[in-house]
Write a protein that binds this DNA or RNA. Structure first.
Lengths: 325, 325
DNA sequence: TCATTATGTGTAACCGGTACCACATAGAAC
DNA sequence: GTTCTATGTGGTACCGGTTACACATAATGA
């Protein structure tokens, strides 16, 4: 592969001129532009990003840290981030942390060695120290890491309130709330939103804490349905809602006539279930895209206009609730 | 950040010695090891992979090109690849091609500039020229690119045969085959497997060509169900099977008592549907992991023992077919 | 007319590693 | 005693870019 000196020689100019040409920096005559362009063409020259990175100490890699890309919540985020990154000339490095702090720290370290320009982090365990010390731009998605780190998420509390309200409007009076893990920001927020909705109303509520896992959700809900009479479920993710649907099916309980279910996230999964899952949709693409844009701004030294952004959620009424049937 | 010269100075040795120490190459005295290790520790030194890459013209980046990470087939692959890559010290760059040739070529170009060590490609359009000319290791997943490029996939023909056979065994006699796009390797193979199974049997078959998209599948199946009497569907992906389930539900056709459905892929989606989707499972993790291992072998200059690997598929019987009900 | 500024280009140090080569020493082999 | 080999270390060119600085020349302003 040709390098910049080959191009300079072929064009009959110095490497500095070629470099200026490539970066649109400083003065270059039209004539120089012409001959360089021709040389670049002839040699099929492509500048080495590695060499450029070494010299400028900058790079065009963005590290994306997610708990597990297999969770349907994350591919949509990743997709958005990748789209924006591509548009701005960045590439995305995929990291699965498995919610494992050590793995996460390790990743950050490794990627620093590789001069990543910044991180988008969709996982965290309050152990913010590992991030705030870094002199690399970071944007947090979904879960807040630290007040100093820009943060983008859905307005989970309001979203959960809307979703629960929908169950209420559809006539549910015995509601099971499948809240997410205690201490996990978004899960806590959604639970708060659920409470906002039922508070003061004459509603029987059952609360269970359930991880964002299909199997566990199915098992837990099966048990609850056997013991209590429930006519509505607010699940704090689509995956756990899917588990609840399965449990209802096994128990011979018809959805939505006997039991109504509202999920959360608005992933593909929700739309592909039968019956279609009514869900509180996060605008995942918008969140991802916005995070990517913010990160790139930070990387390129621009000021952020907003430090924390809450995106409104939208209720997608489908067939697991009666108004959608 | 400290560099290798700082370490050398602190340890009172030359950079060459430090470099040898870091790479476990050549002779180093125990004493030298000790002082260098100490200096590394003190300075919290981390070698720059960028500089190393520039010098060695190698890197530890693997480019993963998929059509769309949002398709539930790919996250599981990506996950496996990432796991293996991490274990061997590589990092994965995520690229969504959208089946767009230009985008794909562009990606390859960009990543070459960034010195990726190799590609794992899960997308292709027979336009293999863009890959075979590259002097970078490539491994193809799922879809064959060219005979010169190592290829790993499920034994789709046999998998489809097993899946179809299962419908036959469960008593279906009017079977709809939702084949994937014509000309797409795995889709053609699966269709061949379907034919292998029904050939010579006294079965009515209906064939439709259906892209791997939920909505399209739902619409197409709705139409077929309205016009013909079908008691079994072989879908060549879980996503399209999910679409078929939805169509049956809308038409008031009960699964599996009136209509049995077999999907293909064995993604999470299949297990999360209600009723659970009987599906021909690809061992996605194994495929991804194997592809990653093969690629790393190639990158590191080792010989490949196998050039093409077909992984057997496994039938997962769940509740959309009667033997699983 | 002379100083100043805008325009244009080249030289070479630098980013942080790698690795070739020279060189030193010590023990083994002859 | 000399040669050979194994062991250990250092100097420095090189990878392919960027950019500070020096140095031109032409145009502008006082």
């Amino acid at each position: 592969m040709a390098n910049i000196r080959d191009v300079a020689k072929a064009a009959g100019v110095s490497v500095a001129t070629v470099s200026r040409y490539l970066n649109n920096k400083g003065y270059i005559s039209e004539e120089a532009k012409r001959v360089i362009a021709q040389a670049v063409e002839e040699l099929n020259y492509q500048p080495s990003m590695i060499a450029r990175s070494l010299s400028t100490k900058q790079s065009t890699f963005i590290g994306l840290i997610v708990p597990d890309i297999v969770n349907p919540f994350f591919p949509e985020l990743a997709r958005a981030i990748e789209d924006i990154a591509l548009a701005y000339g960045y590439t995305v490095i995929l990291c699965n942390s498995d919610e494992d702090l050590e793995k996460e720290i390790n990743y950050v370290k490794t990627l620093q060695q590789k001069y990543v320009a910044g991180f988008i982090v969709a996982t965290s365990h309050a152990e913010a120290e590992h991030y705030i010390g870094l002199d690399i731009p970071i944007v947090a998605i979904d879960r807040r890491i630290h007040s100093s780190i820009p943060y983008i998420a859905t307005d989970n509390r309001e979203g959960a309130r809307i979703g629960t309200e929908h169950l209420l409007d559809s006539g549910c009076t015995n509601i099971l709330c499948m809240r997410g893990p205690l201490g996990l920001g978004p899960a806590d927020d959604r639970f708060a939103g659920f409470n906002d909705a039922v508070m003061g109303k004459n509603i029987n509520t059952h609360i269970i804490e359930c991880p964002f896992q299909f199997d566990v959700a199915e098992t837990m809900v099966k048990k609850v349905l056997a013991e209590a009479s429930i006519d509505g479920i607010f699940a704090s993710s689509d995956v756990t809602a899917a588990g609840a649907m399965k449990a209802a099916y096994s128990a011979g309980i018809h959805v939505p006539s006997q039991l109504q279910i509202v999920g959360y996230d608005g992933t593909m999964l929700a739309s592909q279930l039968t019956p279609g899952l009514t869900t509180v949709a996060q605008d995942l693409y918008r969140i991802g895209a916005m995070a990517a844009r913010m990160l790139i701004k930070l990387i390129e030294g621009q000021e952020l206009t907003e430090h924390e952004v809450l995106i409104p959620a939208e209720l997608l009424i489908r067939q697991t609730t009666r108004s959608g049937a």
